[in-house]
Design a protein around this nucleic acid. Structure first.
Length: 204
DNA sequence: CGTTCGATGCACT
DNA sequence: GTGCATCGAACGT
């Protein structure tokens, strides 16, 4: 079952927690690619210095101010696309960053996309490495700016509930930010091997 | 295990 | 011009 818009129109920390165990699915010309979400981060409002809404509305962050249940995809560090799910009622700028997946469908295609253009060989990738990290998972699933503003409740990029209940959920500081490190708004499935970050940030 | 550092493009000041 | 919601290779311990 595809998650309905009401799922996203809630407090962002609840959505970040409840997305764990759900399945991100991207239908492409090469077929279906999907994975279970095992790590998320919440970015909440103009008062959150790490949120893209911190400077107020701009052309880039416009999706954050729009209705919930849509994708916010942006380009970072000159080479990576990051995908978020917009949350809260429309007008409240917030989103959940998807940081890692446990690969489910289309694993062979995901491996190929992951190593394309690099010197690495697909066979050298451990299954848990394929979608570990926000830049890695978008690459594996073929997600780019074409998916910005995609409706996550209908179409080629959706999030499904397949009845999987995650194990214990752990919380800690968000990764890769300068300001806002005091807010423990990163959630992950404790002990899951596909979770990103250094060992010290994968613990319980 | 840990830290450092280059690649790479764009939004924003 | 500055600073990224990153990654992986290279190197030190």
């Amino acid at each position: 079952m595809i998650l309905p818009r009401a799922f996203y129109a809630r407090p962002t920390l609840e959505v970040a927690r409840d997305l764990l165990g759900k399945v991100l699915v991207h239908e492409t010309a090469a077929g279906r690619a999907s994975g279970m979400i095992v790590e998320t981060e919440a970015y909440i409002g103009e008062d959150d210095p790490a949120c893209h809404a911190a400077p107020g509305p701009t052309p880039r962050n416009a999706p954050l101010y729009g209705p919930p249940g849509f994708a916010y995809v942006y380009f970072n560090y000159g080479m990576h696309y990051l995908v978020n799910a917009v949350t809260e009622p429309e007008g409240a700028p917030a989103a959940v960053l998807i940081r890692a997946l446990a690969p489910l469908e289309g694993v062979a295609s995901m491996r190929r996309r992951r190593v394309r253009g690099t010197g690495r060989r697909a066979a050298d990738l451990d299954v848990h490495e394929i979608c570990r990290g926000p830049g890695n998972l978008t690459r594996a699933l073929g997600i780019g700016l074409g998916q910005n503003r995609a409706d996550l409740t209908h179409g080629a990029l959706v999030v499904e509930d397949r009845g999987t209940t995650p194990g214990r959920v752990a919380w800690g500081p968000r990764i890769g930010i300068r300001a806002g490190v005091d807010r423990p708004w990163r959630a992950w499935i404790a002990g899951h091997p596909a979770v990103s970050g250094p060992a010290a940030m994968r613990g319980v």
